[in-house]
Amino acid sequence: MAPVKNTSVKEERKEWARAQRQERIIGMAAQLLAKCDIEEITLEDVAKSSGYTIQNLYQYFKNKDDLFAAVLLKKLKVMYADAESAVERTTLGIDRIITLGDKYVDFCLRNKRYFDLQMHFERKFCAYHKLTAKKTRGDFIVQCQGVIDQVSDLAIDAIKSGIEDRSIKTHLKPLHLMLLLWAQMLGVIQVITMRQRYFKEIYELTSEKFRRDFKDSIQAYLSSGQGK
């Protein structure tokens, strides 16, 4: 039995070493992303920075998109855990959806390149809520879609809860309302990103006030039943 045990230990060490190398590659790709957009980064850049060859990279990732999906996945998991924790501390459905939206907007504005990276995958693969991503898209892309679906489910559950406790008044199905709110949040993020430096001079407001006004308008819309 001893040889079997030794073989098992060797396999565990081998898997640990593989995981460490993979994490190093992901970490170096994240460092490059902090300086450049994904379109400007090549696999050659990542390989050179991490001390491996391109052939080594293909042992861990199917392609460039799979690699940067792994980079995005780490951030998405942190964002989801933070959002889930914040939502659990609220009671009314309307407070849950407002809190979730606020957390997502905050995440995107604090992590602009990761927001751009998420939009890159949205545009390129269009694997939307509850659609099964094709295996050819890469394992990490599939995992990213799973986390995004979890965030969507948080929003849908919050809306359902709000309809049940009557803090949200709407004729829309929860899935449809989630999509509508998602679209509005993306618009707010884009406006702040593109026009923030002109807010005070032209619009006479700050990005913080713009966000508060948006949140207040959404809360008023959901609670008043204006969408009926």
Rank of each mutant, 00 (worst) to 15 (best):
7 T>A: 15
8 S>W: 06
8 S>C: 08
10 K>W: 04
10 K>T: 00
10 K>R: 07
11 E>T: 04
12 E>V: 03
13 R>S: 04
14 K>N: 03
15 E>K: 15
15 E>G: 06
16 W>E: 11
16 W>A: 13
17 A>I: 14
18 R>C: 03
18 R>K: 11
19 A>D: 09
20 Q>F: 13
20 Q>P: 06
23 E>Y: 04
23 E>L: 13
25 I>L: 09
25 I>C: 07
27 G>C: 05
27 G>I: 15
27 G>W: 01
28 M>F: 01
28 M>R: 08
28 M>T: 07
28 M>C: 06
29 A>D: 05
29 A>S: 10
33 L>S: 04
33 L>D: 05
34 A>C: 00
35 K>S: 13
35 K>D: 12
36 C>A: 12
36 C>L: 13
37 D>M: 14
40 E>W: 06
41 I>E: 14
41 I>M: 12
41 I>R: 09
42 T>P: 08
43 L>H: 05
44 E>P: 03
45 D>Y: 11
50 S>I: 00
50 S>L: 00
52 Y>S: 00
54 I>Y: 15
54 I>S: 15
54 I>D: 12
55 Q>R: 15
55 Q>D: 07
56 N>S: 07
57 L>V: 04
57 L>H: 10
58 Y>A: 07
58 Y>T: 02
59 Q>E: 03
59 Q>P: 02
60 Y>N: 11
60 Y>M: 12
61 F>K: 05
62 K>C: 09
62 K>W: 08
65 D>K: 09
65 D>I: 11
66 D>Y: 09
70 A>P: 03
70 A>G: 05
71 V>P: 05
72 L>C: 03
72 L>E: 08
74 K>C: 00
